[in-house]
Design a protein around this nucleic acid. Structure first.
Lengths: 150, 150
DNA sequence: TATTGTTATACTCTATAACTATA
DNA sequence: TATAGTTATAGAGTATAACAATA
């Protein structure tokens, strides 16, 4: 059972496996990869509204409603009505959920180690460098939606 | 807009992009990546039956029915009733469709060049080697289904 | 009149399981 | 009784577009 001879196909397959494995991991925390993407973006851009979040994720605004609903029910995120424009809901992570947020971060770290455990530190750096070169060339940014097909 | 700092996330994103770009390309030929996967497997294992194909693709047998239907309608594949066991349908690519099969192959090649155009030959070999190492470590084989989440 | 967020509808896709024909 | 292939149904997930509130 040989693996493919082209880089592109191999990249698709290893990427799909990496995504699927991450989905399994965060499912144990009651989340999906999309939830984690939301938390990541909100963590880096506290107070942004849902439209801005949707644009960053490349998702429809109606999709974001559900995602934020679920994270709010989990007590990880909160909507605050903007005092300047009452149409806007500013998104913030919840301070008291620090523990769960840390465990999510820890899952990300374990995932990273599992996927790259066959590589030594030098190889890992090289792989990152080569992938980053491709990402830059192909015009990818950091907030994409790695689970979907487009 | 920084790209991610972890290899795993970057790998997911570049892999998803690679899959999505391939899907766009083969859509111009009226196909999906799954169709191409079927053609690849049948090309390498002419005469196999649908159950064996399903097992190799990691797909449900009922899924294979539709895929083979569509490829048969396109004139790219044909079912032949096995003379030994009339329950089996042996799958074969159609000889007269050589032209279209070649253009699919050519699309695969163009895709490969597009994705890796930022790398020189040495880097390309290195990337293949590192990805192959991960694939082997993670227990991946070559006939997977890189478009789906599992 | 335009924009933010929400809701409702309709569509796509897939797996599950029932069905047939062969063995 | 078991297996290959097919068909039908039901379920999950998503985007599209209508809607309400605010500007």
């Amino acid at each position: 059972m040989p693996r493919p001879t082209g880089v592109a196909l191999l990249l698709s397959q290893v990427g799909a496996h990496t995504s699927a494995r991450f989905a399994q991991r965060v499912a144990e925390l009651g989340l999906t990869p999309e939830h984690v993407a939301v938390l990541r973006v909100v963590g880096q851009h506290a107070g942004l509204n849902q439209q801005a979040l949707a644009a960053r994720l490349g998702a429809a605004p109606s999709r974001v409603v559900r995602l934020v609903d679920e994270l709010e029910e989990e007590g990880l995120l909160e909507r605050r009505q903007s005092p300047h424009d009452r149409r806007h809901r500013e998104l913030h992570t919840v301070g008291t959920a620090e523990g769960r947020l840390m465990s999510i971060l820890s899952a990300v770290g374990e995932h990273e180690r599992e996927i790259t455990r066959a590589l030594d530190p030098d190889e890992k750096r090289t792989l990152f460098h080569l992938l980053d070169k491709i990402a830059a060339d192909q015009g990818l940014d950091g907030d994409g939606h790695p689970g979907s097909g487009r």
